[in-house]
């Protein structure tokens, strides 16, 4: 459907480098990255608002990177909606149809189902200045949809919506996608990405660092950046040693972590979930193969208890209940033991 191949683009102070990805017909594709990662720039390049310097953009097999913006058949909804302030809602929505030589009947045939899906029929005669952020977003969506774009690009569509309305709008976006609309959606919000995407591409500093389904990406993050997005704090680059059947990973020369897996790689990434780490005041015999003495470096409240950072040569994040933290007398500088099973340490090789 849409194939981006080796796209590069430079603007003063910013570059997109060798971006490649493919979006299938009817797919909900999310570009996830922090502010300033180049997400919006990439969307504008696909829409034709920024000229690319290298690479190609193919839509349904046809090269469109030199095509005029108005002939690309790509809809773009801007983060701040860009609803025309001097036109009514109705005039805004009809704007893309005005130059298409459609009869009034054909026009209303196109508009009616869309305004009914977006529930904005009652706003048609209003001016944008009188609308809320959520309403403006719906108007902008309707305006982009009436031109029946082959691909709909959404730039942070939920960023300026208050949280009460977010789930409504998410449901609406899912609905639009289920109706067959291919969507590329840019966001910095992990939850948004997981709840909407068929596939995700993670973009960092002008590059795509990982692509896959949300499950693939967040269960096998290939960089600390991706892991950070998924809320995983214990993510380390490791050197791997094999002796007999035993695989040991070294995030630090003095920290050997025993793994329960088979691998031929010499390097990889190690991921340990906070909730899989056990803390105790003294060392004890257990089935856990990884036991380290460390010092509490930091402790702070989180939603379900306390997050404890223990330095065992590397900073390890553990999560404990408030009761446990009190029982163990956890405080900064205290010596403590850390335990986790070999199977809790997950190795990701690239």
């Amino acid at each position: 459907m849409l194939k981006i191949d080796n796209l590069s683009l430079s603007l003063p102070g910013f570059h997109l480098k060798n971006i490649s990805f493919e979006v299938a017909d009817g797919e909900y594709f999310i570009l996830l990255g922090e502010s300033g990662a180049g997400k919006s720039l990439l969307l504008e390049a696909i829409a034709g608002l920024n000229k690319i310097h290298e690479g190609s953009i193919k839509l349904k097999g046809k090269e469109i990177s030199n095509e005029k913006i108005q002939q690309r058949e790509i809809g773009l909804v801007f983060q701040d909606h860009a609803v025309f302030p001097h036109l009514t809602v109705n005039e805004n929505i009809s704007y893309p149809l005005k130059h298409r030589h459609l009869t009034a009947e054909e026009r209303s045939k196109r508009i009616k189902p869309i305004i009914s899906t977006l529930q904005i029929s009652h706003l048609l005669n209003r001016r944008p200045a009188t609308l809320s952020g959520g309403e403006l977003q719906r108007v902008a969506l309707a305006r982009a949809l009436v031109q029946k774009p082959k691909v709909l690009l959404l730039d942070e569509p939920l960023a300026s919506i208050d949280s009460m309305l977010k789930s409504d709008l998410r449901a609406l976006l899912r609905q639009i996608n289920r109706d067959g609309q291919t969507i590329i959606h840019v966001t910095h919000d992990f939850d948004e990405a997981v709840s909407l995407a068929d596939r995700i591409a993670i973009i960092d500093n002008g590059k795509i660092v990982q692509t896959g389904t949300p499950h693939e990406v967040f269960s096998n993050p290939v960089s600390g950046f991706v892991a950070h997005f998924a809320g995983i704090r214990n993510f380390f680059r490791v050197r791997i040693e094999r002796k007999h059947d035993l695989v040991t990973a070294y995030p630090h020369e003095n920290v050997p972590i025993t793994l329960n897996c088979v691998t031929n790689s010499d390097t990889g990434y190690l991921l340990i979930r906070n909730e899989d780490i056990l803390l105790s005041a003294e060392n004890f015999e257990s089935s856990a193969l990884n036991n380290f003495e460390g010092i509490v470096e930091d402790i702070y409240p989180v939603r379900n208890g306390e997050e404890v950072v223990v330095n065992i040569g590397i900073p390890l994040h553990a999560q404990v209940s408030r009761e446990s933290a009190e029982k163990l007398g956890l405080q900064r500088g205290k010596t403590i033991w850390v335990h986790f099973k070999a199977s809790a340490a997950k190795l990701i090789t690239v």
Binding site: E44, L49, I69, F78, F84, P96, H99, R100, R143, A144
Partner: peptide, 8 residues
């Protein structure tokens, strides 16, 4: 820019 993407 929005108007351009709307086909104008």
């Amino acid at each position: 820019k929005a108007a351009l993407t709307l086909g104008a």
